[in-house]
Amino acid sequence: MWFIIDDQMADDRRIRRLPLATVGLWVKLCVIHSKGVSMQSKDPSAYPGHFDQLDLKDAGGTMRQLQQLIDAGLMEEHDGGWRPVYAEGICREPRVLTEEQREARRKAGSKGGRRKAANQKAKQTSGDLPENSQANEEQNSSETGSKPSSKLLEDSQAKTWHKTDTDTDIPSPTPPAGTAKQTASEAPDAFAAIAETYPGTIGAKGRKAEREARDLVETITENPVQLARLQSAVRRYRRAVNDGHVPQRQVPRLATWLRDQWETWAPEPITPTRQHKHTWNCEHVHQLMDPHEDEYDHSGSLREGNPSKWYLACQACADELNQETSKEKQ
Rank of each mutant, 00 (worst) to 15 (best):
residue 39 M to R: 11
residue 122 A to T: 11
residue 245 H to M: 15
residue 297 D to C: 05
residue 52 D to R: 06
residue 62 T to E: 04
residue 282 C to R: 02
residue 154 E to D: 10
residue 43 D to M: 11
residue 107 K to H: 15
residue 72 A to N: 06
residue 150 S to L: 10
residue 227 L to K: 07
residue 228 A to E: 08
residue 31 V to E: 14
residue 55 D to K: 00
residue 181 K to P: 13
residue 1 M to K: 05
residue 287 Q to C: 06
residue 150 S to K: 12
residue 213 A to I: 01
residue 305 G to S: 02
residue 311 Y to I: 01
residue 242 N to C: 11
residue 302 L to Y: 12
residue 212 E to D: 09
residue 299 S to F: 09
residue 312 L to Q: 13
residue 192 A to N: 04
residue 266 A to Y: 04
residue 114 R to H: 06
residue 78 H to M: 13
residue 287 Q to P: 06
residue 124 Q to N: 11
residue 101 Q to M: 11
residue 63 M to H: 15
residue 100 E to V: 06
residue 248 Q to G: 15
residue 270 I to A: 09
residue 116 K to L: 15
residue 14 R to Y: 11
residue 176 P to V: 04
residue 309 K to T: 14
residue 43 D to G: 03
residue 18 L to N: 02
residue 292 H to E: 07
residue 289 M to Q: 04
residue 264 T to S: 07
residue 249 R to M: 07
residue 125 T to N: 14
residue 103 E to K: 11
residue 265 W to G: 08
residue 152 L to S: 06
residue 266 A to N: 03
residue 170 I to F: 01
residue 103 E to W: 14
residue 216 L to M: 05
residue 18 L to R: 01
residue 9 M to N: 10
residue 241 V to C: 03
residue 267 P to I: 03
residue 173 P to H: 02
residue 37 V to P: 03
residue 179 T to D: 12
residue 231 Q to E: 04
residue 76 E to T: 05
residue 145 G to P: 04
residue 68 Q to F: 08
residue 321 L to Y: 01
residue 323 Q to Y: 08
residue 269 P to Q: 09
residue 232 S to N: 01
residue 46 A to S: 06
residue 75 M to F: 09
residue 244 G to D: 01
residue 149 S to D: 14
residue 193 A to Q: 00
residue 325 T to V: 15
residue 154 E to V: 01
residue 153 L to P: 04
residue 274 R to V: 07
residue 241 V to L: 00
residue 276 H to F: 14
residue 223 N to R: 05
residue 110 S to V: 15
residue 261 Q to A: 13
residue 170 I to M: 03
residue 149 S to C: 13
residue 66 L to H: 02
residue 213 A to Y: 00
residue 318 A to S: 06
residue 218 E to V: 09
residue 129 L to V: 15
residue 245 H to L: 13
residue 35 K to D: 10
residue 90 I to E: 01
residue 108 A to Y: 07
residue 247 P to Y: 04
residue 266 A to W: 03
residue 15 I to C: 14
residue 308 S to Q: 00
residue 164 T to C: 00
residue 158 A to H: 03
residue 198 Y to W: 01
residue 81 G to D: 00
residue 294 D to K: 14
residue 115 R to I: 14
residue 313 A to L: 07
residue 155 D to L: 05
residue 79 D to P: 07
residue 278 H to I: 07
residue 234 V to N: 07
residue 99 E to K: 12
residue 80 G to N: 07
residue 40 Q to N: 00
residue 78 H to K: 13
residue 189 D to W: 10
residue 168 T to I: 13
residue 84 P to R: 03
residue 295 E to M: 08
